[in-house]
Design a protein around this nucleic acid. Structure first.
Lengths: 204, 204
DNA sequence: CTGTGCATGTAAGGAGTTACATGATTCG
DNA sequence: CGAATCATGTAACTCCTTACATGCACAG
């Protein structure tokens, strides 16, 4: 399971609440691993039970040197001594415990599945091949637009975040972005070429 | 849900048993939509209930009670004399009924999600970026090899099945194959470029 | 007569989706 | 004050994965 591990990474990059994570999964790491807020809260709960992470009031920290430091995170939420209040609803900031870090390393180095694609449109195209032209060009146009939009987004990120010289961390993150860019470029080009084949005959 | 629809297409292309389908999902359509044999049998059962497909010798005990529980296993079993013929275990060849075909068309033309990638290795790389070089080059090499293997397979299929002039059906199927080829080429190239970044320092 | 391939399933559990619910804070 | 947004969760359900179970047919 990778959702937990994606969350661990996000938490290492920056200790966060479930809500923060949910928003972050709508961008950055969510671009290559999607998760909804319900999933996130559930996995946070499980990982807390497993001792991989902990909410701030409980034994926060222990890892030696997180690569990124949150720097100016409003320090006002201290009050460690007398809390005991248990306000039901207040923000819980989770941090990664040593066990969580270990688990992450273990998982990163364990062999993964690789190549098991699941793209709906490919199945639809196969159907279109089998049972006559159904007018898939409309759907295809829609998807091309989506991929172009995403491509533009990635290119903007590249321009903004990856100019100048990069350290190792940035180089890898840039490579991840490039993967996305190349994938989208490739997809759009392929889709455009395919388009003429999909028109329904009676359109003429 | 697309597994059902992938099965419908396979059955339209050629009426088959669950077993046949499972084997076919290890190639051709399985290249872009994976499914295990358990999934296949379950979905076949459901689609049969829905009236989308039917096994060839339909008369098979469908005569009286529509919702017969297929339980009747283990101990209580008695009286093989009841309906003598019907060997329990023999091959069921399913074919698509009009309702199934309609459903397939409906689904093909309905808008799908598009872009929600989920590639484990990308998450792992992000982790490697965040918490030092962990030695991901080994895993990366493994994956590159997998993708190259798949690429070679695709190229063989192209050479064998798509020479000469093609009709529309073949053109689309060729485009699907090309999608796979381009994806794999792209992936391998990207992976090779990334590799130098992943070596663990102490390897020197 | 034993192993391999054909052929069909059940059971249990984990992961993901969709819908609903609720209270707190902030801002105009 | 009311609406938007922050923030956390439950419940029900579907889908996917892994392991197990059974029985027939045929070849060596």
């Amino acid at each position: 399971m990778s959702t937990q591990h994606a969350l661990l990474i996000s938490l290492i990059e920056k200790p966060s609440s479930g809500y923060d994570l949910a928003r972050r999964f709508d961008k950055s790491i969510g671009y290559f691993w999607h998760a909804t807020h319900q999933q996130i809260y559930r996995e946070l709960g499980r990982m807390a039970e497993l001792g991989w992470i902990a909410a701030d009031e409980t034994a926060r920290e222990a890892t030696t040197q997180p690569t990124t430091q949150p720097a100016a995170q409003s320090t006002d939420n201290a009050a460690p001594e007398g809390n005991a209040v248990e306000k039901k609803n207040r923000k819980k900031v989770y941090g990664v415990l040593p066990a969580g870090r270990q688990e992450l390393v273990r998982w990163v180095l364990s062999p993964g599945a690789g190549l098991d694609q699941r793209e709906e449109i490919l199945v639809k195209l196969r159907a279109d091949a089998a049972i006559g032209p159904l007018g898939l060009d409309q759907e295809m146009l829609r998807l091309i637009a989506l991929h172009e939009e995403r491509l533009a987004l990635y290119r903007n990120i590249e321009r903004k975040d990856f100019a100048g010289t990069l350290d190792r961390r940035q180089k890898i993150q840039h490579a991840l972005l490039m993967r996305g860019i190349q994938f989208q470029e490739n997809w759009v080009k392929w889709g455009r070429e395919l388009l003429p084949l999909l028109e329904k005959a009676d359109k003429a």
